[in-house]
């Protein structure tokens, strides 16, 4: 696929003939709809698109996309996708993972795919629970979470997925949620447009094992006061009745303030391109529990050399320097002698 060729498709072209088998009411349906709906807007062809997933509820995703796809092994999707993308920089490679798949069993592969900046669009469905294995706590479950494997409450502090991604030098980091199709589509579009590894955390409701996990943030009635929409170049504000914003205190920490109290000039202006990940990191950790307002949108988007392109460039340089492949010359490269 060349970057300039635009392929005309419809949403239908992206749906496979397979029956979707998530639990009725699962947040995954909304995400699937958003992905299938945004694909025609990307101008790419289904045959040049690959979805790779690990194991977990979300990882059934590739079966429902009419593209090339692999439902692989628990946690390993970023590694396998790295192989696909490195071999074929011409392809659009998407990784579908969950909080258990991506941050627990596959944490190592996730951070290294981000570090290498492989051209992958990684969608992490975060429902803070193990759904497929019927309800154990996950690496994003909060302390105290009572599940089948933690009848007295979880004692493991959770990961903040965006902190992990930023710590792993991710060049694109975003968050969206399963109730807002438009926001998901915008976010996926931006993630796809980014050359390099794009990491998108999606708050996703598991209505069977962890229902309402994000209600305090994403429910319509609280959204305006609990969700912060990050817009590049704009002051970071939110709030229904009282205009609130995010400002930086003298000690460098972020705090929620009333805009009227500090003045709009003292509200942080979002800069997703900032060379330092510090602001994105602080924003990612604004809601260390669900009682604080939570930022959504693109936290960080910076240009960094992309892995598969660098690999290709080395190959091109080697060809330039050493010429066309010559097996006979290779066999003689360590010196030879002749026996008559």
């Amino acid at each position: 696929m060349s970057d300039t060729a635009v392929t005309l498709t419809t949403k239908k072209d992206w749906a496979s003939d397979q029956e979707v088998r998530w639990c009725p009411g699962c947040g995954d349906y909304g995400i699937l709809q958003a992905v299938q709906q945004v694909m025609p807007e990307l101008g790419v062809a289904p045959e040049n698109t690959v979805f790779v997933s690990g194991i977990g509820c979300s990882s059934r995703f590739p079966y429902y996309m009419n593209t090339y796809g692999m439902h692989s092994i628990h946690g390993r999707a970023p590694a396998i996708a790295t192989g696909v993308a490195t071999a074929r920089p011409d392809l659009d490679v998407w990784v579908i993972t969950g909080d258990g798949d991506g941050l627990s069993i596959g944490g190592n592969h996730l951070i290294h795919a981000l570090r290498r900046n492989v051209n992958l669009t990684i969608l992490m469905f975060n429902n803070r629970i193990y759904g497929l294995t019927k309800g154990q706590y996950s690496p994003t479950s909060y302390v105290g979470k009572v599940t089948k494997s933690t009848p007295f409450g979880s004692i493991d502090p959770p990961f903040n997925p965006l902190s992990v991604a930023l710590g792993a030098e991710a060049s694109f980091v975003a968050r969206t949620h399963d109730l807002d199709r438009q926001h998901m589509m915008e976010t996926f579009k931006a993630a796809h447009a980014h050359r390099g590894a794009s990491f998108v955390e999606i708050y996703q409701n598991c209505n069977v094992f962890n229902d309402g996990q994000f209600n305090d943030i994403t429910k319509r009635s609280v959204r305006d006061d609990m969700m912060i929409n990050l817009v590049h170049g704009e002051p970071i504000t939110f709030g229904s009745e009282v205009a609130k914003g995010v400002s930086m205190g003298d000690d460098g920490t972020l705090r929620i303030v009333n805009v009227d109290d500090v003045g709009i000039d003292n509200i942080l202006v979002h800069d997703k391109h900032h060379h330092s990940p510090s602001l994105a990191f602080a924003l990612a950790r604004l809601n260390q529990d669900d009682s604080s307002p939570t930022p959504f949108g693109v936290f960080r988007a910076v240009e960094r050399p992309e892995y598969s392109s660098e690999v290709s460039a080395q190959l091109a340089r080697a060809s330039e320097k050493s010429g066309a492949p010559d097996m006979d010359a290779l066999l003689r490269s360590n010196g030879t002698w002749v026996v008559d």
């Binding site: 690959v50 790779v52 090339y68 692999m70 692989s72 092994i73 390993r76 590694a79 396998i80 996708a81 790295t82 192989g83 696909v84 993308a85 490195t86 071999a87 074929r88 392809l91 592969h109």
Partner: peptide
């Protein structure tokens, strides 16, 4: 995983 991904992609 890289090897298998590459094979899937035709290498």
């Amino acid at each position: 995983g890289v090897a298998l991904g590459a094979s899937f992609a035709g290498h």
